[in-house]
């Protein structure tokens, strides 16, 4: 089928143009010149190539802005290579650019060259890259997620039975200290590639700023239970049962944590 036949209706024309824009191959110049008018200075295909150049540059720039720490870690060229491949595999399907990077961490994982290697023999720097992308995506989501600003947060006197997590909250568990790396980049440093080290963080947005808190395994376990929607009193009971801990042991842990988490805006009063 010739270009003219393929583009005889608007649907065909748009499908053909788009394939050369977001697909891996540009449309053929001789075909473009049959459809697109020349100007006094450029052929039809040269004119269309303005769109092709801009498409890639435009979205690569957006990807770099959504993953600034990963862009720093990989360097602009390597990051752009990954992002370019990603955009071919997963072109945007949303009206909003906020969704552009949603599948990027998963893409990095699925395209890793050592994905079939047994655990323990995979390249650690790829794990770092994937986890850093996951962390950045989570931060990006929390930035504009529904939050609790303008409404009352829990106070020290709020009983445990009424303490529930605030809506703009997320937990992260990573194979590298990606949050520390991210915040070093944020303040303009050039941190070294970190060694593997299990890290767990809580992300909490208050007053439209997203705060990163490192949490212990014990704290992470409690927060994980709380993300199911339980109040603190119930979550502590579940945690005690899960870990086979006595009431006093649980209370001792909780007493040392409660005030800091309330002050940090982890909780809102239920009911």
């Amino acid at each position: 089928m010739t270009a003219i036949e393929r583009t005889a209706d608007l649907r065909g024309l748009q499908t053909w143009l788009q394939s050369g824009l977001i697909g891996p191959q540009p449309i053929a110049a001789d075909e473009a010149d049959q459809i697109l008018a020349p100007s006094a200075r450029l052929t039809g295909s040269q004119r269309w190539s303005i769109y092709q150049r801009a498409y890639s540059s435009r979205l690569l720039k957006c990807m770099a802005e959504q993953f600034p720490a990963l862009n720093h870690a990989l360097g602009e060229d390597l990051f752009a290579d990954f992002a370019r491949e990603f955009l071919v595999a997963y072109p945007s399907e949303s009206y909003t650019l906020y969704e552009l990077g949603r599948r990027f961490p998963g893409f990095l994982e699925e395209r890793r060259p050592d994905r079939d290697a047994p655990d323990g023999s995979r390249e650690p720097w790829i794990d770092f890259m994937v986890d850093l992308a996951r962390f950045e995506r989570q931060l990006f989501v929390l930035f504009d997620a529904p939050g609790h600003e303008g409404n009352p947060f829990a106070k020290p006197e709020t009983p445990d039975e009424r303490l529930v997590l605030q809506p703009c909250f997320a937990l992260g568990s990573y194979r590298f200290p990606v949050a520390a790396y991210y915040h070093e980049v944020r303040i303009g440093k050039d941190p070294a590639y970190p060694s593997a080290e299990h890290s767990q963080v809580a992300l909490v947005r208050t007053d439209y700023s997203t705060h990163t808190y490192r949490v212990t395994g014990f704290q992470h376990a409690l927060l994980q239970i709380l993300t199911r929607g339980l109040n603190v009193a119930d979550a502590l009971r579940v945690l005690g049962a899960d870990l086979n801990l006595s009431g006093p042991e649980i209370q001792k842990f909780w007493t040392g944590t409660r005030g800091r988490w309330i002050a940090a805006g982890f909780f809102i009063p239920s009911g």
Partner: peptide, 22 residues
């Protein structure tokens, strides 16, 4: 150098600016 047509990166918020390490 050819600059970008229809820039859209201004639509992407600077999330790093509002991220705080505790």
């Amino acid at each position: 150098h050819e600059s970008l047509s229809t820039p859209v990166d201004f639509l992407v918020p600077n999330v790093m600016e509002s991220a705080v390490s505790e």
